[in-house]
């Protein structure tokens, strides 16, 4: 009887002490870097858009969702993140651009993985909610990123200004490329061997080239942003969907 009680106490002690135990667990950091034609993306810095236009950006941000890790040696996918918001809006110099924006997932099982899947935008279930359903601090609680006219979150927000007369003043036109609605949601699978090590933080670097988001359907030229300065027309999502298609192709892992 005494042994049984002792065993029970021992078991309880082990159970209690294992609460918060990080044995066999590690962290995964995904470091997002934004570039423009391979150069670090810095807000308010001038970049050539095409042969005749220069552009600068004030905002570049997007939602990522349903992030899963593909386990090595099996078909198992481990869901590690439902939704997060990645933004480069505060990057105002090259040093900050090199740091990018980090999404950290803690206490993942130490394991080898062969890749990851992630959603670009807000998946339909969550996109059926609205910003008032969340506190301000939640990624989906951003009033600035819910577009009631579309009944959708703004999946990617690209705000820029254009100098078309080469006078150095970016006051000729604005670019407001905001994507959203369920049919603009995209997923991206990235093959990449990595291991989450126990007690360590493993970092994967994902880079997105913003200029590539503006590629036209021929994949060579860029969208006429003077004729199409905004993507707010709920009845015409051609550019919205094109931008999201481009986003899929413009995001890649830095080995």
């Amino acid at each position: 009887m005494q042994f049984k009680v002792f065993s029970l106490i021992l078991l309880l002690s082990v159970a209690i002490s294992s609460c918060g135990d990080k044995t066999g667990k590690g962290d995964l950091a995904i470091q997002f870097l934004a570039t423009y034609d391979g150069a670090p993306l810095v807000m308010l810095q001038e970049y050539p858009y095409n042969d005749t236009l220069d552009i600068l950006f004030q905002k570049f941000n997007f939602y990522i969702s349903n992030l899963t890790l593909l386990e090595e040696g099996s078909e198992k996918e481990r869901e590690v993140l439902e939704i997060d918001f990645v933004e480069f809006d505060a990057i105002d110099d090259v040093a900050k651009a090199a740091l990018g924006f980090v999404v950290l997932m803690e206490d993942l099982p130490a394991h080898s993985y062969k890749g990851l899947n992630l959603g670009l935008g807000v998946p339909a279930g969550l996109n059926a909610t609205q910003e008032s359903d969340y506190p301000d601090s939640h990624p989906l609680g951003k009033a600035s990123h819910y577009w009631s006219g579309w009944g959708s979150y703004i999946f990617t927000m690209i705000n820029g200004k254009v100098d078309s007369d080469d006078d150095g003043q970016f006051d000729d036109s604005s670019v407001l490329y905001h994507t959203g609605s369920d049919d603009s949601y995209r997923t991206k699978e990235i093959a990449h061997q990595f291991r989450v090590e126990e007690g360590e933080t493993t970092t994967i670097v994902l880079e997105v080239d913003l200029h590539k988001l503006f590629l036209d359907t021929d994949g060579v030229h860029y969208i006429d942003i003077i004729a199409n300065p905004a993507t707010h027309d709920i009845t015409n999502k051609t550019i919205t969907n094109l931008v999201m298609d481009n986003f899929q192709n413009a995001l890649y892992v830095v080995e």
């Binding site: 300065p229 905004a230 707010h232 027309d233 709920i234 009845t235």
Partner: peptide, 9 residues
């Protein structure tokens, strides 16, 4: 106050 679209500059 709210009008969209604003496609045509």
């Amino acid at each position: 106050y709210t009008t969209e679209p604003v496609i045509d500059p």
